[in-house]
């Protein structure tokens, strides 16, 4: 049922020419996919989808829309060739899946190789109830470090692209305070003021409880950023910049990556391998715990700082 909704939404997205409506439907799309992830028991993925897909990406897409036009330009080429390409690719993918073991088949390679080790040994080796966090932060520490660096680089890239052409960023920040209905909206202002501390604290809760339940640095960073975005939306860019200035954010985003890598290096100095947290404390499990906590903090800091930074840039450009 959910899948059919998903398919219908996709068709509608393709057919609509009004980009705004498309963005709205994308919102529905990501809500749906999160619901599907939930039904597939992929809690952490659903969490990420919830935070990133439904909230931030909608906001960023809208911000992009304000930089471009609202309606899609009519296609310049025929639809036959792309359709053919898509069909062939899709066919190839379906053909590929024919070889794959049946869903949930215990003989499948994926269940023979690393998964059992992760599932069986992780409680003993890492000592965390949430296996996903163990895998992400410990067994696959290199990958995650790579991802964080990618986010950092992406942030730097957007910063350069949009920051280079900043014509009116600095001067016109506060013009919005005058005529905008959202800024003038008493109801929004009061409720946002009540809500924001709770959102922030909730983000930190997600940050530090990634060990026990779904959550972790990525999700926490996004939620934290969302609180700031809400603040920026309602009180204006200037106020938000005064709370967390772009300079501070830049430092923070780099600091997050450095914290992650630093924990890894600390492992070397303590006599282990890079990103081996077992040696960080007297007891391996305690060391793992400490290491994961620290790198999750690094991830969260980087994600939040980069997200807020990108949003500032977009917001600064749209005025």
């Amino acid at each position: 049922m959910l899948l059919s909704f998903l398919a219908i939404t996709t068709i509608a997205v393709v057919r609509l020419r009004d980009l705004f409506a498309v963005v709205m439907l994308f919102g529905i799309f990501s809500l749906l996919s999160a619901a599907i992830f939930v039904t597939l028991d992929a809690v952490d993925v659903a969490f990420t989808e919830a935070a990133v897909g439904a909230g931030i990406s909608t906001v960023l897409m809208l911000a992009t829309l304000t930089l471009t036009t609202r309606t899609e330009s009519p296609p310049r080429h025929g639809t036959l060739l792309p359709l053919l390409v898509v069909c062939v690719t899709g066919g190839a993918l379906v053909y590929g899946t024919l070889d794959m073991p049946r869903f949930g088949d215990p003989q499948a390679p994926i269940h023979q190789h690393v998964a059992p080790r992760y599932l069986q040994d992780s409680p003993a080796e890492i000592g965390l109830p949430n296996v996903v966090t163990s895998v992400l932060a410990s067994y696959r520490g290199y990958d995650t470090l790579g991802e964080v660096t990618v986010i950092f680089t992406a942030g730097a890239g957007v910063l350069m692209l949009l920051g280079a052409i900043r014509r009116r960023t600095a001067c016109c920040d506060d013009t919005g305070k005058g005529g905008s209905a959202v800024n003038h909206n008493l109801v929004l202002r009061v409720v946002a003021k009540i809500l924001i501390p709770f959102v922030l604290l909730f983000a930190l809760y997600v940050q530090f409880h990634g060990d026990f339940g779904p959550g972790g640095g990525f999700q926490a960073g996004v939620i934290f950023a969302a609180a700031f975005i809400l603040y920026t939306l309602i009180f204006g860019l200037a106020a938000a910049r005064a709370v967390a200035s772009p300079g501070v954010l830049r430092v923070l985003s780099a600091l997050g990556v450095l914290l992650f890598a630093g924990v890894g290096l600390a492992g070397i100095f303590a006599g282990g391998d890079f990103l081996d947290y077992g040696v960080l404390a007297s007891h391996p499990v305690a060391g793992q715990h400490l290491g994961i906590l620290l790198i999750e903090l690094g991830v969260g800091t980087t994600v939040a700082a980069v997200m807020i930074m990108i949003f500032y840039l977009f917001a600064g450009r749209t005025r």
Binding site: N185, L188, V191
Partner: peptide, 20 residues
């Protein structure tokens, strides 16, 4: 609690924006 906070605010903001 959150829904009862955000729900009416969203509805109000929506109505206001539509009117605007």
């Amino acid at each position: 609690l959150f829904l009862s906070f955000t729900g009416p605010v969203a509805a109000h903001a929506l109505a206001r924006a539509a009117l605007h």
